[in-house]
């Protein structure tokens, strides 16, 4: 790692001031992506501003048919929260499938979505549930937030504070995890909620996306057969040593079916 100065923010406003005063500073939450990145010398921040311990960024609560989760809430806490398990079990299940236990004990919701790794799990839920990302400056809708591989609508100095998930009637997440890394080769979050029927796919393409053909077909007829033979655009599919475009597209289709079956089995 290159040298940097570590500063533990005392509050959100303190973090904001530190980031504003140091243009080459980076925010540190769980560090599950940032620390490996620093170890590979792929980044050289002047400061690391640690917001992982801020109580303002922690917590899980239900408010007006929305599940509100603080940005620095750890994956383990989401996976095991009785509130999440009761109101949005698909999200608890998603969090339980992230990385491994040690990673879930450190990694955070805000860190995951701010990083927007194309194979991260949370973006699929955020998009499928039409969640609102609340920052220190504004509120951003999920469809505006994710802007392709590692890109988001966040501006310099903008800090994710919490995420408001619309609680759906029912939802499910299924992923085909890469056996070594645990990252999604394809992960699909299907939600039947106030925003209609939504299908969000992560891992398969350069960024999380909604499979609109599947959404339309399932809106007409909410069953398994509706997914047969539906087109899935290969243009943006990832192709690497792990899988071809066609294979990833097929995984996305199969995960959509599994998520649908899982969702339809719920009451």
């Amino acid at each position: 790692m290159f040298q940097f100065n570590y500063v533990k923010a005392k509050s959100l406003s303190d973090a904001q001031a530190l980031i504003a005063a140091n243009p080459d500073a980076k925010l540190l939450s769980g560090g599950m992506t940032l620390i490996p990145t620093l170890k590979q010398r792929l980044a050289q921040p002047s400061h690391l501003v640690d917001i992982g311990g801020l109580s303002e960024l922690r917590g899980i609560e239900v408010n007006d048919a929305q599940l509100v989760i603080g940005a620095a809430t750890r994956h383990h806490d989401v996976a095991t929260s009785p509130v999440v398990k009761k109101t949005l079990p698909a999200l608890a299940s998603l969090a339980y499938q992230i990385g491994d236990p040690q990673v879930r004990n450190r990694g955070t919701l805000g860190g995951s979505i701010a990083n927007n790794d194309p194979a991260a799990d949370y973006p699929a839920a955020v998009l499928a549930l039409d969640a609102t990302i609340v920052t220190n400056k504004r509120e951003i809708g999920a469809s505006d937030f994710f802007q392709g591989m590692f890109a988001t609508a966040l501006e310099e100095g903008e800090i994710v504070v919490r995420v408001r998930f619309n609680i759906p009637k029912r939802a499910a997440y299924e992923k085909f995890a890469h056996p070594a890394s645990g990252y999604a080769m394809a992960g699909v979050f299907v939600a039947d909620g106030s925003a209609g029927l939504r299908v969000a796919v992560t891992g398969a393409a350069s960024g999380v996306f909604r499979w609109s053909e599947a959404e339309q077909a399932l809106t007409k007829k909410l069953n398994f057969a509706a997914l047969e033979g539906l087109p899935l655009d290969l243009t943006n599919m990832n192709e690497d040593i792990h899988a071809t475009r066609e294979y990833r597209a097929n995984l996305a289709r199969v995960m959509t079916k599994r998520a649908l079956l899982n969702m339809l089995a719920q009451k």
């Binding site: 570590y6 620390i35 040690q102 004990n105």
Partner: peptide, 19 residues
Amino acid sequence: CTVHVDGRAVKSCTMLAVQ
């Protein structure tokens, strides 16, 4: 490198000592 930090298992190669 797993150790317990405040009762939770973490990978100590991916945590700064200052954290």
